[in-house]
Design a protein around this nucleic acid. Sequence first.
DNA 1: TATATCATGTAATGCGTTACATGATTTA
DNA 2: TAAATCATGTAACGCATTACATGATATA
Lengths: 194, 194
Amino acid sequence: MKPPDPTLLGYALLALIHQAPRSGYDLRKLFATTPLMSFSDSPGAIYPALKKLEQTGLIRSVVRDQGLRRKRVFRLSPSGLAKLKTWLTRPVQREDIIRHVDQLLVRFGFMDETVGAEGTIDLLRQMESGLAAYVPELQTFLAAHGPAMSLSGRLALESGISSYKSFLVWSRYALRQYEASRKRVAYETSQHSS
Amino acid sequence: MKPPDPTLLGYALLALIHQAPRSGYDLRKLFATTPLMSFSDSPGAIYPALKKLEQTGLIRSVVRDQGLRRKRVFRLSPSGLAKLKTWLTRPVQREDIIRHVDQLLVRFGFMDETVGAEGTIDLLRQMESGLAAYVPELQTFLAAHGPAMSLSGRLALESGISSYKSFLVWSRYALRQYEASRKRVAYETSQHSS
DNA sequence: TATATCATGTAATGCGTTACATGATTTA
DNA sequence: TAAATCATGTAACGCATTACATGATATA
């Protein structure tokens, strides 16, 4: 009955369309040229995904044909914006930390334009505490099983650990950035209102 | 005509079976309990994958029924071992660095048991130079587009950069470990031969 | 004797990948 | 005028996910 939730690609498309109205080709070019996200820029991925988003009413399209080449431009519908928001503000599960860190990063990258600094800080706090809890688990595993592993196996595990650690450090850095920017905003608005 | 190459899951199964003969259930438990790899432990993923590997002749199975529960135990065939080796020693492409770092890590983790220290060092060198080339690209992108990005977008990009950087640092650390262990082996064998 | 664990599978579904296909418009 | 780029799609295929299904054996 209920249409299923979008995939990660679907959500990314929603977020990018929310930033600005875009065509399928625009989106392909974004995926091809920006280093942030690991999505395929192949038409066979993007056009069907857009079609599905439109069929489920999350986006709407208008064909523009003025002088230029014919172009189908998409915009978010109200329900599309709502879907995007609930995705962005979904609580961080343990699984997100263990197996879908990349998804968390994509989510994070799109937060400002949709849920503002409050929501972004909220996500960062959840990421920070999730990571802070997970790193020691990995270290415990390494201490227990490391000695029995091959050198390459152990080093691969250590690579995972150090990557999580650097992510944890980053999350704290990002929190500081946000708190600084919030103070700045507070200061500026107080200047205005005075 | 030619059977297609295994998927990443298929290669991981090959490598784990190469470490020791294992059953489907053994493999499921490994995926469920070890933190290294992000594979699903669901039977719907593993049993069909094993079936396919057997159909293409890369593994062979024997049903064991002695006293315990009935169990299908898999071993690598010669062609399976060959397939595994060519996968492990495949040259590192730019795409591997940009979009499949996780795969590189999986590959790396399985190298010792199959291609030895020589091959592992080779992979590490390729990873190191690929990463060393890619990090500045990302930094250039950040410098060019960062100012126009939202704070969360920019921070997400910075997170990617710092993660690549920490991976680069790790690759150099891993190289030192291997060179140290190689010297140790050389020393020990020279002691033996003297 | 009821529950958890061992152990192996199948079925429906959906999505992404690769490859194919088309046509208009700049640019060299 | 040939090639590159803009722009949108479809078709075949394979694989993973989720859910379902079964039955034996420890364990409480």
